[in-house]
Structure formats: structure tokens, C-alpha cells
């Protein structure tokens, strides 16, 4: 099922949680909504589910306008952050709940419901736990039951709110891989919310990066990591260093010197240079480079992180050096970013 979000705005008490968001999701896609807290990602997910109504705009499921459909009619599978399993029901009853509450004309027989439940339990690799209560399961198991329960109603879209948020790191990684497998096997259009970039990049076909109620960038993991289209995405995804620069004559300048980076498409003026600390080349001689003195240095796993003072200590920037590099305190290092981007300074 395709999902199309068209110019949606959502206000809470006149405070905009989402401002004019549009998003096209292809059938069978696995999409991550990634952003810091308060970015509106959960609100967007809840709007798609029908748990909230948009202030403006439309949400389409396929060609059908779903905006006025009640949540019961939308037929979405929603996995809640804390799973929201029904404590007083067994695992099998939890999974069968969505089928049991159907109007009698559409309700499968009890035997059929039981069969579906155990099928889904097989799918989520929890066979044999039908009679358990949620309190008797581990966090990871509860997560799987919640997913099975959401899938039992044969949803048109599967929505997951921070699906791994409440689990510890080890279980998280396992479940991540497993969710991908389930998705590939069942082909549900799936949207999940996360604030964990690693999770989003590893798992999703496309990542939707959000900030302050807006979509910053939509793209594959490679796209959002390698070619971030805004300072926010640069800063939010992966590690980044930034320096205030100036653009003049299609060249990037720091203070009174060009640093050997060409930016012909940019107009002249104040700007900020972004690059990844590890994505640099070290230079011996400096004619067109960034140079600075080492202010601090620390060992991070297989590399050395060095903080450089640029331009007499007014700016500091972090780069990654090989462990064997002889850079010591106060010594001078010259480098040039290999992959980088310059964004004009935003006029406030």
C-alpha cells in the first residue's frame, strides 16, 4: 500500500508540531522517520495511524483519502514504544484480539483465530509461548508479540514507534536484523520512528530526517550520510566538524587565505564549512589548506582525535589522525577535507 502525506500541518494548542510536511512512501518500502525529540516524527506517525487528526492537509492510503477514516477503519498495524500489550490476556489472546473484535460477519472462527495466532508466533520465532502472559516475557519477546499482534489484522501499513527504544543494546541489534528479515518476507509497507541514526541507516530503505516539525531530507542511507543537504542533517547524522568560512570568487576562504576548495555555485558571503573528521587528507605543505595547532588530542579506539586551533585560537575543529601520526601538543597540522559542503550563513 502506498502512503502519501500531502501538505500536512498539525498544531497542538496552536503550537505547530508539524509544519507543511509532504512525503510519498512506495508500497513495500521500509521507511525510517529520524530526528531528535520534538522534531515531530512521532506526531507524523500518529497522524498516519489516525491517532491524531491533521490540522490541515491530507493523508492518502493508495488513492483513497484516509484523513476522515476513523482509526478503527484505517486498518494500520501500530507497534507502540512500550508495546502496550494487554496484561490480562495471554500471548495468543493478544495476537488474536484484532480478529476477535471484528464485526461478526467478518470475524474468523475461533479455530481460525487460534491458527493465525500460532502462525504469527512462528513468524516472530516465539512458537510455544501462546499461553504465557506478557509479564512472563522478556522485553525482546514482548516486542515480537506486539509486532505479531499488529500484523494479525493484515494491516495496510505497519507503523512502529521507537520499536527498539526500550531494549538493551545487544537485543536491539538482534531485533533490528530480524525486523528487516520479517519485512522482506512479508512485504508490508513499514514506517518506523527512531532517534537512533545507526538504527535508521542500517535498517531503512529510505530515511526521512526531521527537525522542528519539518522534513530536512529524504534519501537512502548513502544519500543522507554522504550528501547531507542541510547543516542540520550534517550535524545530526554521523560525526561532523564545522568552521565559519567566507565564499569569494567561487573559492572558500578562512580569514584571508583560500583553502583550496572550490565552490563555484555559491554566491559570495559568510558561510559554514562542514566535513567529516575522518574524511580528510593530511598535507605536508600548505598552499591552500586548513592549518592549525594541536590544542588537545585523545585516543578513540583505532584512531586519534585531535582538536585544532585555527586562526589564532578563535575557532576549534576536530579531525581524525592515524594513531601513528607524530602530531604533538602545539605542533602544526595542515589538512584539507576530501568530502565537504559549504552552506551559506542563514540570515536570522
Amino acid at each position: 500500500m502506498e502512503v502519501r502525506v500531502s501538505n500536512v500541518r498539525k498544531e497542538f494548542d496552536r503550537f505547530p508540531a508539524l509544519r507543511d510536511v509532504s512525503l510519498d512512501i512506495k508500497s513495500g518500502e521500509l521507511i525510517a522517520l529520524l530526528g531528535p525529540s520534538g522534531s515531530g516524527k512521532t506526531t507524523l506517525l500518529r497522524l498516519i495511524a489516525g491517532l491524531e487528526r491533521p490540522t490541515r492537509g491530507t493523508i492518502f492510503f493508495g488513492d483513497e483519502d484516509a484523513s476522515n477514516r476513523t482509526i478503527q477503519e484505517r486498518n494500520v498495524g501500530f507497534v507502540f514504544q512500550h508495546y502496550a500489550l494487554f496484561r490480562h490476556m495471554t500471548v495468543a489472546d493478544n495476537i488474536g484480539f484484532g480478529l476477535k473484535v471484528r464485526p461478526s460477519a467478518k470475524r474468523p472462527t475461533r479455530a481460525e483465530i487460534r491458527r493465525r495466532a500460532s502462525e504469527l508466533l512462528d513468524l516472530v520465532q516465539l512458537s510455544g509461548l501462546e499461553k504465557r502472559y506478557p509479564a512472563q516475557l522478556s522485553g525482546g519477546q514482548r516486542q515480537r508479540v506486539a509486532l505479531a499482534r499488529a500484523m494479525a489484522i493484515e494491516p495496510r501499513v505497519l507503523l512502529l514507534d521507537e520499536p527498539f527504544g526500550a531494549l538493551d543494546a545487544q537485543v536491539r541489534r538482534e531485533l533490528r536484523r530480524w525486523l528487516r528479515e520479517i519485512h522482506d518476507a512479508t512485504g508490508h509497507t513499514t514506517i518506523f520512528v527512531t532517534h537512533d541514526q545507526e538504527e535508521a541507516l542500517e535498517l531503512a530503505d529510505r530515511v526521512v530526517v526531521m527537525s522542528q516539525g519539518r522534513i530536512e531530507q529524504i534519501g537512502t542511507a548513502d544519500e543522507v550520510y554522504d550528501t547531507p543537504n542541510s547543516p542540520f542533517v550534517y550535524g545530526f547524522i554521523g560525526e561532523s566538524s564545522s568552521l565559519p568560512v567566507k565564499v569569494e570568487d567561487g573559492q572558500v576562504w578562512i580569514a584571508d587565505r583560500p583553502i583550496g576548495l572550490a565552490a563555484p555555485e555559491l554566491t559570495d558571503g559568510e558561510a559554514t564549512l562542514y566535513f567529516r573528521p575522518h574524511d580528510i587528507e593530511l598535507l605536508d605543505e600548505c598552499n591552500g589548506c586548513i592549518a592549525g595547532t594541536v590544542a588537545a588530542s585523545r585516543r578513540v579506539a583505532g584512531t586519534r582525535r585531535v582538536e585544532l586551533e585555527i586562526g589564532g585560537g578563535r575557532e576549534r575543529v576536530e579531525i581524525e589522525l592515524p594513531v601513528g601520526h607524530p602530531a604533538a601538543q602545539k605542533s602544526r597540522v595542515a589538512f584539507r577535507p576530501k568530502r565537504w559542503k559549504v552552506f551559506p550563513k542563514v540570515v536570522e
Binding site: 497542538f12 494548542d13 525529540s37 520534538g38 506526531t43 500518529r46 489516525g50 491524531e52 487528526r53
Partner: peptide, 11 residues
């Protein structure tokens, strides 16, 4: 937004 969410009982 989190506060607002609690004030507005969802549908």
C-alpha cells in the same frame, strides 16, 4: 509537543 499530547486526549 509532549505536553500537548497529554492535554489533547487522542481520538
Amino acid at each position: 509537543p509532549a505536553d500537548a499530547y497529554h492535554e489533547h486526549a487522542s481520538l
